[in-house]
Structures are given as C-alpha cells and as structure tokens.
Design a protein around this nucleic acid. Structure first.
Length: 421
RNA sequence: GUGGACGUAGUUCAGUUGGUAGAGCCCUGGAUUGUGGAUCCAGCUGUCGCGGGUUCAAUUCCCGUCGUCCACCCCA
C-alpha cells in the first residue's frame, strides 16, 4: 500500500465503530435530557479566533495548531478546541439578543499537532457543552453535574473531580504579579522549564512535577480571589455539596487555555495512564469580550471521546432489541432477484436485511449468517420459487417454518420480535 | 520538541549466531448432490515498514527515515 493514514489519526470501523455510535447516542440522550441543543460549527476557523482566545502563549497556539493559508491568503486553522467557535457562532448569530441563556452541545473532531501517545491523537474527538449567558454558580454546578452524568450513564459513579477557581481578570492579574515576584525570589531553585514558565505563564509552574519544594512556598490563587470571585466559588461549592457531588479542591489546578475565569475543573480516571483527564472545563466570562462582543458570562466543558471509549468495555450491553434482522441465502440469479424484492419490502417495514449474493454453498452462507449474528435466515431456492414461499430459520433455536412470499412482512409484525421459537 | 521499546502474511506472533521465511486464527475449497459457530483434509496470501551503507550475500549488522506504543511535556 502506497498510502497510510496521517500520524496520530484513526480509521473507525467494525465493532469499534458500532461502539462509538452507541456511545454517541447515549451521550446525546443525556445532553438532550438537560435541555442542551446541538450546534455544529465549521471544522476550520480564522486563526485569529484561537490565537486571541486560547492565548498567544499557550501550548496550543504556539506549537499545536494546524494552520494554513487558503488560495486568497486567508489564515485558517483546523479547530483545536470548540469553545471559542461556539462563542463566535453565538455572537455572530446575535443570540444574545434572545436574552436568557443558551445551552449548546457538540461532538466532533478537533486537531492538535502533538506527539501521539496513549489516549492522545492529532485528530481526536470531543463531546462538549456550553451554557452561555448566566453568571450564577448554579449553572457551573449544572455543567459539572452534566459532565459527571455522562460517565454515570456508563456505570462510573465515583470518578475523581478536581475543582479550583482561577479568579477573574482582575484578581488573577494581581495574583500573577505577586506570583512573578515570588518566582524571581526562588529563581535558583527552579528547573529550566519552570524558569521559562515564570517568564511566559507563571501559572504553569504549578503543573511542574520536579519543582515540588518551590511550589509549597508559592502563594495560592484561592487565597487571593476578589470578593466576587470568592463568593462565586463558595456558592458553587455549597451547591455541589447540596447535590452530593464529590469533589477535591485542588488549588494547583490550572487549565491550559487562557480564557478560563473563576471555576476550573477536571474529571480524572486514575487507571488511564499519563493522559488521565477524561474531561475538563470551567467558566470563561471574558471570552465574549475578547471576541469584541459585550461581556457575556459562560461555562462549559469538553470530554475526550477516545478516552471515554478507552475506559468502556468492548461490548456495551445492548438496549432493547428492535425488529429481528434477517439474512437471505440464495443459490442463483433467479433466487437473488426474488430475494431482493422481498428484502426491499422488509426494509420498507424497517427490518434490517442482508442478502448474501456470494452464491457460495449453503454451509458457507449459513456460517456467515451465524458469525454476523443475524436472528433469522431466509432461504430462497428453486423449491421456494416454485411454491412462492420462503423457508425461515431461527438461528438461535434452529427451528424452521415455511412462510409465503406475501405474508413474510406481516408474519414478523404479528409475531412481534420473537417470530418462530 | 526530548527519551525508550518495537515495526515479519488480513491478523496475532515465531524465526534465521547474515545464504530472500514459518505457525495459529481468518479466508477459499472439500469430507452424501439445499442447513450453521465442532472436527478432519487441502489451498491462498508476504517487495520480512521505507531508503541507504557494510558484505560474495541482509529480513537478520550499521545509519537515516517513516510509523506504532510508552514516558517526559501537554491536555481531551
């Protein structure tokens, strides 16, 4: 083969694709249940949208964006995240004029040029939700609860939630100055990476795993929140407590995107290896303003689809079985024509019908039907054509029956999902 | 971007102390001519990731490159 898929991308097919679809359906139901509605924004946007909002100094912007020029020289970027695009769409479509609060969800591919690793891809998929237009911490709690519900749906009831408040532009700005001063003070004790971080984004020093001793001596954001921010944070904690949501306060939690204000949180799965964040989110009250709109409060989260898939068993338990599915076995061209006519009628009645056109011997066809786990096999041979009836076989029980061509559809409708026993 | 392990049939892997390769599964056909996941028999498939070097000879050694996985980093 001459071509391979680009590094860090995946082909989704077979059982994995089935599972993927099923997960998407489950998750969609939960999001809808909370009153969130789907939004689809373009896969690429003007580069400035991300540079401006995610942050010029952020890793995403400095080294991870897939940016290109189109034929008119416009600078475009494959979306590395979807919060900024959703906010852009919100403002561009004038939704703030509708007043109240807008709740969106999305699912789709994101692109980040990063070294592939377990649970990390260059094209990866996020499920996310954004609640725009409300500053009340109750909506922060709703977002956190909603994201947790996604995992609960699949049986994960006690995942670790790390919570923090990173303050607003005002109090974080003041804190940053203080932090910067402290970092200069401890300069000699910092690792090379942190010396850089101290210059570019002092907040990131908290992420360092080697400078543990210095971190202990550094001031903590939550001690320096302004009145509004600390009140917001306390209320949020109280609401979460009241809702029986378990969380861990992590004053060192910092998100990698610059637009976050106040609430920041993430959901961790301890057994996932280095890439253990299932979901991350928070409040981004400054984002709309950054895009040139009015100041609009908002919260959201995004969850990694691949990581959710990773923690789920290969076989998701099947929900209620719908109509039985059928596998047609035919022996020659005349039979196959008749089979396709009947298959069409069944499909119109919403049955899944597979017509085996291989003309292989009956054993092979039957085996194939078994492997594919069809409920029924329908034989059409010369005998059936002459009598204008099919031989029907239940693959689970092995029992057979004869049903005339005209009555095939109604046969199943009348017998319900079980058919012959 | 840094470090480590690995890269052989569709797939999982074995192998050659350097002489161009093999096993299970899968697939195809058959074992009384129209009835299945078992058994048995037969068969198919590979530029041994790609490029270069050393050598009479490389899939086996060396270098580079691409890719996969793991960690750093970052994050979903």
């Amino acid at each position: 083969m001459k071509f391979k898929k680009p590094r860090g991308t995946q082909d989704l097919l077979g059982k994995y694709m089935e599972k993927w679809r099923s997960v998407e359906e489950h998750v969609t139901r939960i999001l809808q249940r909370y009153g969130y509605r789907e939004i689809r924004t373009p896969i690429f946007e003007m580069s400035g949208l991300f540079v401006r909002t995610v942050g010029e100094s952020s890793d995403i912007v400095t080294k991870e964006m897939y940016t290109f020029n189109d034929k008119k020289g416009r600078k475009l970027t494959l979306r590395p995240e979807n919060t900024a695009p959703v906010m852009r769409a919100y403002l561009e479509n004038g939704l703030q004029r509708q007043g109240g609060i807008s709740r969106f969800y999305y699912m789709g591919p994101m692109f980040r040029y990063d070294r592939p690793q377990a649970g990390r891809y260059r094209q990866f998929h996020q499920i996310g939700a954004e609640a725009i237009g409300l500053s009340n911490p109750a909506i922060d709690a709703e977002i956190i609860n909603l994201s947790l519900d996604i995992y609960k749906e699949f049986g994960f009831s006690s995942l670790q939630v790390n919570l923090n408040s990173v303050g607003c532009m005002k109090c974080r700005g003041e804190f940053m100055i203080l932090l910067g001063e402290k970092l200069t003070e401890y300069k000699s004790e910092l690792c090379d990476d942190c010396l850089q971080r101290a210059e570019i984004n002092p907040f990131r020093v908290f992420d360092c795993k080697t400078c543990i001793n210095v971190k202990k001596k550094l001031p903590i954001i939550t001690d320096y929140l302004c009145g509004e921010c600390s009140e917001h944070f306390e209320k949020l904690c109280a609401i979460l407590g009241g809702m029986n949501v378990n969380y861990l306060l992590d004053p060192l939690l910092v998100r990698g995107l610059d637009y976050y204000t106040k609430t920041a949180y993430e959901i961790i799965h301890p057994e996932l290896g280095a890439q253990n964040a299932l979901c991350g989110g928070g409040r981004y009250d400054g984002l709309a303003g950054e895009l040139g709109g009015a100041s609009i409060p908002a919260v959201g989260f995004s969850a990694g689809m691949e990581r959710l898939m990773q923690i789920l068993p290969d076989e998701l338990e099947e929900k209620e079985v719908g109509r039985p599915d059928l596998y047609f076995i035919v022996f020659d061209d005349e039979c196959s024509i008749q089979a396709m006519i009947l298959a069409d009628k069944l499909r119109s009645a919403d049955f899944e019908v597979y017509v085996d056109l291989s003309m292989r011997n009956i054993k092979k066809q039957l085996k194939s039907a078994s492997v594919r786990e069809y409920d029924y096999v329908v034989f059409i041979g010369q005998k059936e054509i002459e009598d204008k009836e099919v031989t029907l076989k239940n693959l689970k029980s092995g029992n057979q029956a004869t049903v005339s061509f005209e009555k095939l559809v109604s046969y199943f409708s009348e017998k319900g999902v079980t058919g012959i026993e």
